[in-house]
Simulated assay, not measured.
Amino acid sequence: MSAKGEGSASMRMFGSVARSLREARGVSTDELAAHVGYSKSLVVKIERGERMPPPAFVEKAGVLLGDGGGVLRSAACHLERAEFPSWFEEYAELERAVVSLYTYDTHVINGLLQTEEYARVVLGSYCPTLESEEVERRVRARLARQSLLTRAPAPQLAFVIEEWVLRRPVGGRAVHRSQLGRLLEAAALRHVTVQVMPLSHTAHAGFDGPMHLLETPDLRLLAYLEVQGRSVLVDGRNEVSKLHQRYAMIRSQALSVGDSARVIEQIAGEL
């Protein structure tokens, strides 16, 4: 499915109310932007529910739009930021309750295994650039997801990671070393396996890219695919079956759990 705005339902509702009031008064977005002292692009994003309206926007817009009943202020009282981008929300909800989760990662270490510092560098590198407050909010949300690793009953978790991902010094040596240590800690958990796809393989079954395979409490098998701010949740039995076959081959071609741990330790020792 295509990417959508990243606001919460309450933000989208506020934006709809603001747009309705503006249109009812015959005020253009340019006129509203000039009155509230913000850019037209910000006004448009607020009306789309993609940006949280600053308090000054609520007050000044209410004056211009003749909001005598305080509709905007009332709507603002219920504003909540979305915990995750809208295209990720459905997956995040499913992830919280999985019985099993198998992942294959090709660009960065999976968010469930990232340290706070590593996550901050990854999210801080987002383009278009995110505001610092938004980066920190997303870091907190990402770390909160990691409760899955300590949840009871414990889900079965498997991670296959391309070796080049482990060799990229994201955030510099200190952050890199800490992140590799975090991987080894996770791999020591009885319900978690971490495997490395070595650079020495000239070919393997993962060339089509990363994937997440989920099993829900009602034993449904799903697949989640993501690229460039777009995602798709796959529930067709034939498609999911093919992805499970592919993942089984990827795991068989990756290094064993023991050899993978030794590679991670070796990379850490080279820092």
Rank of each mutant, 00 (worst) to 15 (best):
L130V: 01
S231Y: 04
G62W: 02
H212A: 15
S100I: 00
A75V: 10
P210T: 08
V135M: 07
A261S: 14
I267T: 05
I46H: 01
R137M: 06
V121H: 03
E59I: 11
A203M: 13
T193M: 06
V232C: 08
V98D: 00
R48Q: 15
G37Y: 14
A61V: 07
E83K: 13
R246M: 13
Q245Y: 06
F14N: 00
G68L: 04
V27W: 03
D208N: 13
Y247K: 02
Q253D: 04
R51A: 08
E90P: 02
Q245E: 14
L148I: 10
A186K: 03
R251L: 11
G68I: 05
F159V: 02
P217M: 02
E239N: 13
L166Y: 01
V58Q: 01
S241A: 14
G5N: 13
E47M: 15
L221S: 14
V58P: 00
G69M: 11
S8N: 09
M11I: 07
Q245H: 14
H176W: 15
S74F: 01
A154H: 13
P198F: 09
G66H: 05
A158G: 11
L189M: 15
S200T: 15
P54E: 06
A34S: 12
V27P: 01
A75T: 06
A141M: 09
A141L: 09
S16Y: 05
L130C: 07
E80W: 03
L189T: 07
T216D: 11
S86A: 14
L199V: 13
K45A: 08
Y247Q: 02
F14C: 03
I267V: 13
A205P: 09
E90C: 03
F84Q: 04
I267N: 07
G68D: 10
A174R: 15
A254W: 01
S28K: 07
F207P: 00
E226I: 05
P198V: 05
L213S: 01
L271P: 00
R167T: 03
G69T: 04
T150S: 12
P217Q: 02
G68K: 06
A203W: 06
T193Q: 14
S74A: 15
G111I: 06
A203E: 05
S8A: 14
Y224K: 03
H191M: 03
L143A: 14
S86N: 12
L189Y: 08
P54K: 09
R182M: 11
V227I: 12
R120I: 08
Q146T: 07
N110I: 01
E89Y: 02
E265D: 12
V257C: 03
E136Y: 04
G206W: 00
T202I: 13
